[in-house]
Structures are given as structure tokens and as C-alpha cells.
Amino acid sequence: MFSVLCNRVWYAVYFTLLHPMLKWLLRKVTGKCELLRICYGEQVGAPRTRAIEKSLKHSKFQALKRLLTDNHVNIDQAVEQILSIKSITVEVHPQFQPTIHICLTQICGYREFITELESVRKTPYSSENNRHEEMLLELWRKLMPDVPLQSRYNRQWGDIGFQGDDPMTDFRGMGLLGLQNLLYFATQHNSTARQVLAHSHHPQYGYSFAIVGINLTGVAHQLLISGALKTHFYNVVQGKPKLDHFHQVYCYLFHEFDKFWLAEKPHIMEFNKVKAKFAKRIVMHLKDRNATLSMKCVTSEAK
């Protein structure tokens, strides 16, 4: 209790008093504002963009703070605003403008991407929607190319790890995103996906492929919402992330989870414990600002 209080007091003192003093001192000594120093000093990608984000968060200018919360930020205008507030001369620092432009696009893009992704997730799977149905059947064909599906409502769905004879009810809170994730994995990394599916049929350490997949959509979604995925996206995507970037993270997670599961050799009833342990491991990995979540070994397949 006491240490929590101490921590809070220290935080308050640091950010209201010490940090501004330090920034002022550094500005006088180096002749550059914090944003400029970050652009010069921090390595491109997550180290730089996250430092810029932190600097904006603790800025004394409300206009700069608002860049982290406003919807539909006009990046060009925002850059102009920073140049004028910080009195930065473009001729003296020619690299600043394009650099801060990329950082802001990444920062605002991440936030906008969450809204986009949420609309896919909140779209429930509907068996009355032909497009949804076609995607579901395509998933079967990609995973089981040699076995035709006898009928739409069929216990065969259990072979790819759905719970009953109608996968519709399994997508739940992950909605269409759950299906899109699975289909992307089965399409873009077909042999890996089928290898993982084969692992899931292990008599002793098997698991339900599709259900685990939908749970992993949940893990990826949580990583995105919590901001943990910023590290990866800032390192990999120069602008605003797109759905495919998220699908790629998903493929990485599924592939890694499969390896993790086989190494742990748990009982199926321990799934939630293993999932939590796996998610924690990913979060730890993303704390390293140079980290990415990319399927290196199988990228050749995507061609």
C-alpha cells in the first residue's frame, strides 16, 4: 500500500516538476526540443514512435496531447502544428518533417485500425449471408482438400475442431473476425495450417483446431486493444495497419501456440491456463521495443 502511494507521488512529482525541468535543461543545452531529440536519437520503428507517443502524452500543449485521442487527425495539419508550436525550422532540420509524419501516421493509424477491426469482430457470423457461408465452406476445402463435406450441417465439422454440426454458433464474440483469421491462415500458410491441424489430432495431446483458433483471435484482439501490438506494428508497418497485417500476426500466434502446446503437453482441460501462459509470454516478448511477431520460416509460402 505504502509503496503504491510512494510510486504515485514519485510519478506526480516527476512528470509535473522534474521531467519539465530536465526537458528545459536539455533544450537549452542541445538547442533541440524533445521531439527533435527523439527523431535524431531513437532508432526508427517502435523505439522512435513509442518515444514520440510518450512525449506527446506528457506535453504541456493540449493541442499535442489531443493527437493521441482525437478521431480522424489530419496528419499534414498536425505536423504543421508541431513545427509552429516547437518553432522548428524545416531548412535546419530537413529530416524532421517526414520522420514525424511517419510516426504520427503510425500512432493515429493504430487507433483508427482498432475501430475498423472492431466493426469486423462485431459482425456476427450469419448462415443467411452467402458470403459468410462461402468463406466457411472455403475454410473446409483449404484444410481438408481431399475430403468433401457431405452436407452443411454435419458432424464432420468436428474434424477441423468446431464443437458441433454447425460452426455458426462457435464464432461468438469474435464474429466474422474469427472466421477471417482462420481462413487467412488456411489460405496464405496452407501447409503450415494443415500441419498444425494434424498436430491438433494427436490422440493424447490433441486440441480442437477451430475452437483454439477462435480463442487465439481473442488473444490477438486483446493484444491489439491493450496496445501491446504497437511494438510489432510500429516496427513492421510504416503507415496505418491493415486487416492483412492483423491476420499475419494471427498466423504467427497460431503457429507459435501449436509449438508451445506440444512442448507443454497439457491435458485439454488445462487449455485456459496454457492460453494465459502463452499470452503472457507474447506480452513479455513485445516489451522489447525491437520485437516483431513474424512467421519467418514460412513466408516463402505466401508467394
Binding site: K122, G173, M174, S208, I211, N215, G218, Q222, N272
Partner: peptide
């Protein structure tokens, strides 16, 4: 709103 099927 973000529930997945329970395995375990």
C-alpha cells in the same frame, strides 16, 4: 462481448 468458446 468478447467471449470465445470454452475449451476446458
Amino acid at each position: 462481448n468478447t467471449i470465445s468458446p470454452t475449451l476446458g
